[in-house]
Nucleic acid binder design. Sequence first.
DNA 1: CTGTGCATGTAAAGTGTTACATGATTTC
DNA 2: GAAATCATGTAACACTTTACATGCACAG
Lengths: 166, 166
Amino acid sequence: MSGYDIKQRLKRLGWLIDSPSFGSLYPILRTLLEEGLVTVEVVPGFDRPPRKIYSVTEAGKAALRGWLDQGVEPGASLKAFVMRLFLAGNLPRASLLADLAQRRRQVAAHHKDLVQTAQGTGQELSLGQTLTLDYGLALSTAELAWLDQTLDRLSIQPPPQEASEH
Amino acid sequence: MSGYDIKQRLKRLGWLIDSPSFGSLYPILRTLLEEGLVTVEVVPGFDRPPRKIYSVTEAGKAALRGWLDQGVEPGASLKAFVMRLFLAGNLPRASLLADLAQRRRQVAAHHKDLVQTAQGTGQELSLGQTLTLDYGLALSTAELAWLDQTLDRLSIQPPPQEASEH
DNA sequence: CTGTGCATGTAAAGTGTTACATGATTTC
DNA sequence: GAAATCATGTAACACTTTACATGCACAG
């Protein structure tokens, strides 16, 4: 993909993560190129400006795998999780399941924390705090349900071949 | 609250937003103090190190209200929304409802986008992309439900007095 | 004929984290 | 006796955005 494409692609997920600006994206691509993690091919467009199509090299894939294998720090944000999830296709199935399981533990802990806060503090909460608490509970409940469902689906149906049902 | 307290408090919401480091938090508090938006009171502890308890001044409240009144840029992240929600107690009820309504529009648009991506692109999605899409759909669905429910609740039950049911 | 989309890139300015320094108390 | 919690703060470093520069095509 080109730098422009990458930004567009990330912007579509912009609700969950924030996509980088060109001012950080282009320098990063140059660095990756210098490190040999990607290659470029310049494709001149008829009408439009020429595009630089980047491809990940084997070294790049290895580096990505290395990064993913490091795992997430406990307490990682939603954003970090989404990023890893997006790249999960490059991860062996077992690692992906471990990642999801760890996320489940984190969200479960957070959920428990929210429930305790709701019960513990009594009635001395501001409207803002009440709403935030409520919002957090709703989202964590939904995420836990999704994680359980997805863990089930991926555990029972392990073949890396694509399912024919479509 | 003290700087330490603020960090603790924000860390409890750390699943949804990331709390600042002390390296940024303390300088910010000093700036706010110099601008007259907060005041300090040093409370020496018997055992523990002395604590600096900050309080928001009237000028600080006015500045906060000004910031909240600016509204959110379209395309604001979940993090930004949670921050505003948390501070919503300082907002007139009508502004809060407007904020929630705008968030609803944003999430609805994002949800629609995800549905189109799921249908449009066909079957040529990687596992990571499929999972991210699925995850986004699950969370946006849950958030829309919460927003609808909350908008209803706050519209029907507008009194700023606390409900007696507890 | 002004604005928007495509497409890349640089430099300055801003914002943030990491690492360090201090110092007492409690837990393993 | 080492490590963690409480509690504040600074300086160096890393990172990011904002603003600018370039240039063509197309729509209102």
